[in-house]
Design a protein around this nucleic acid. Structure first.
Length: 605
DNA sequence: TTCTTAGTGTCGTTAAGTAG
DNA sequence: CTACTTAACGACACTAAGAA
């Protein structure tokens, strides 16, 4: 039996349409999906399969019947074919996965009696282009400076504006026409523009007012309205290139993905979140099926589900929010004139513009995809500012590179992974870690650990050589010695800036951020601390091995564990006998795993 | 007619999530 | 975790259509 229960809706391949059956199983499979991105992925796979069949001698001149010519080895053939094409590893995996999905669906529904297929194992995927990779520090600085320059340029154009001149004289009329000669004087046109058109620019359209029409025709002898407006400093419109730099600037501060940035609404910036009192941004997000967006864990307090819709919340740190606020207010200012043109049914997007030319001239637009302006603007920027990558080639700019660049910046600023996680809007810190791994930030983490260890060693040597009063600080009471769970503190009233910025630090009070000790420059670790540190290490290992750390604080555990390994491991500064004695003592200690994440705050580098 | 700029479809790549 | 699926995003060629 070759046909399925769907028989009535499935066409048969004929000599006129030899691929009809293949197309049909794809179409039926595609119909399962309703997310546009997925549908287009499957359509792409369909196209590729069609081309493959059309070009492969195996199928030449045949009618392709599913289950016969299109047999159980099809996926294997396709993979072999793709292996010889210059496709990226990711694309291979994507296409093969989609085709596998189609075949499985055909099997499940027994389309054309298709019974089964030989599956293939996908190859590992690699990053093969710079498309969405982080800028290097140098590249980022270059771009950021160009961005600032461009914003200044846009601002100066906007600010120049039109200054009413008071020149010219009112026209005489003959009937409804201007008296001959009046419009030859450009100043007279200025008079009309200032007194009859309210100094407002316009573009040619069918809906021009009579006053505008008169001006339009009179302007022709002076080169046309565009030329006049340009010469007079009249802003024709808030076009895409005026508004895009502000969006890019916002993304350098937020790391938003393209679509969420493009779909920000005017009221998505909240100065004081109802729960936390902290500034935040509400942003649209499709991933995570909407109702699973809510972050769990320690950051829950910052985050609130906005509605049943797909919106997420990005908590903002001080510096970040003040920069964002500036951009936000400026964009609202700039777009105010065109915002009033929005009809009630149109969405109140933050980033809107009004093209001054072409098909959409005079209409309010937003930057949601598909929109080519962004791409055009990137090219314009690279050329205008001659931006170069580290190899000296023209820099590849797109908005998606700013996200990993922000992460890179945060990493080198020593911002904790949990904060990065919140900023990126990942529901699981594992995703953040994977992100960081993929982007090759690991060396930075290693440098961090190395720094911690050499600091610890230096402090210990100093302390052993010349013991200091510990924790005198502002109390002036030398009898107070601060011992955290794991170490001594050199100056509990004056920790490094990074610790001061962390949650829980109150000026004038002793530092209680014990969880940051291992990475603090004031830490002193002596022989007496070893048992507790050994217990701590045991706890971390246990936690990691048993999966407890797999979903929550894994990154912090791993990083602290690396530091602990440095202190207690094979290359320890402590002698073998000291360590083994400490090990004995540690058996009686409770396993200690710090339940809190190390908190940092965002700093600009 | 030519110039501009927006809009569309297709191809290709990578990120982000899930199942087991 | 690995292996895989699904979503997101960019480049680009080409088309549309009004303005000059």
């Amino acid at each position: 039996m070759r046909y399925s229960v769907f028989e009535h809706s499935l066409p048969l391949a004929t000599s006129e349409a030899p691929l009809a059956e293949v197309a049909a199983i794809f179409d039926a499979s595609i119909a399962r999906y309703n997310v546009l991105a997925t549908i287009s992925t499957y359509r792409g796979a369909k196209g590729l399969v069609m081309n493959f069949i059309a070009s492969d001698p195996r199928f030449a001149g045949k009618i392709i019947r599913v289950g016969h010519e299109f047999d159980q080895y099809f996926l294997v053939h396709l993979k072999n074919h793709m292996d010889f094409q210059p496709y990226s590893s990711s694309y291979r995996a994507t296409v093969l996965s989609a085709v596998r999905g189609v075949l499985s669906y055909a099997v499940v529904n027994s389309f054309y009696g298709y019974r089964g297929f030989l599956d293939v194992v996908l190859d590992p995927t690699f990053r093969e282009t710079a498309m969405r990779s982080s800028f290097s520090d140098n590249e980022f600085q270059q771009f950021d400076k160009a961005l600032d320059d461009e914003i200044a340029f846009v601002e100066s154009n906007l600010m120049a504006g039109y200054v009413p001149s008071g020149k010219g004289v009112p026209p005489e009329f003959i009937g409804t026409r201007f008296a001959p000669g009046w419009s030859d004087d450009e100043d007279n046109l200025k008079w009309w523009f200032e007194n009859k058109l309210g100094c407002k620019a316009f573009v040619h359209s069918k809906t021009m007012s009579n006053a505008q029409k008169k001006f339009y025709f009179a302007a022709k002898k002076h080169g046309g309205i565009r030329v006049l407006f340009l010469r007079w400093g009249v802003i024709l419109g808030i076009d895409a290139f005026v508004i895009i730099p502000f969006m890019f600037k916002l993304v350098t501060w937020t790391g938003l993905n393209a679509t969420p940035a493009q779909s920000l609404k005017t009221n998505d910036y909240i100065k004081s979140h109802p729960l936390t009192g902290k500034p935040c941004i509400y942003y649209w997000k499709q991933r995570g099926q909407g109702d699973t967006d809510l972050h769990e864990g320690l950051l829950t307090a910052h985050l609130e589900k906005v509605s049943a819709e797909t919106k997420d919340v990005m908590p903002l740190e001080e510096k970040q929010s003040s920069n964002i606020e500036k951009i936000w207010i400026r964009v609202l200012d700039i777009t105010r004139p065109i915002r009033s043109e929005l009809t009630e049914s149109e969405e109140d997007y933050l980033f809107i513009y009004m093209p001054t030319y072409g098909r959409a001239a005079g209409q309010v637009r937003n930057l949601l995809q598909p929109n080519k302006c962004m791409h055009d603007w990137c090219r314009y920027m690279v050329e205008k500012y001659d931006l170069r990558d580290d190899r000296g080639d023209l820099l590849e700019i797109n908005i998606s590179r700013l996200r990993p660049s922000l992460v890179s910046k945060l990493m080198s600023a020593g911002v904790d992974i949990s904060v990065i996680q919140a900023i990126l809007g990942h529901s699981d810190v594992i995703t953040t870690m994977r992100y960081i791994d993929k982007h090759n930030f690991a060396p930075k983490a290693r440098r961090e650990i190395h720094k911690c260890l050499s600091n610890i060693r230096k402090n210990r040597e100093d302390q052993v050589r010349q013991p200091k009063q510990i924790a005198v600080g502002k109390t002036n009471d030398p009898s107070i010695i601060f011992t955290t769970a794991t170490a001594l503190c050199l100056d509990v009233y004056n920790p490094p800036a990074r610790v001061k910025k962390a949650t829980g630090w109150i000026e004038g009070q002793a530092c209680t951020n014990f969880n940051m000790c291992l990475r603090c420059s004031k830490v002193v670790i002596l022989e007496e601390h070893l048992p507790r540190l050994l217990a701590m290490r045991r706890g971390y290992k246990f936690s990691l091995e048993n999966g407890a750390g797999a979903t929550t604080h894994r990154a912090v555990l791993i990083q602290n564990l690396s530091v602990l390994d440095g202190i207690l491991g094979e290359n320890s500064d402590f002698s073998h006998s000291v360590l083994s004695k400490a090990n004995q003592q540690s058996r009686n200690l409770e396993v200690y795993v710090d339940p809190f994440l190390v908190r940092g705050k965002y700093e600009q580098v």
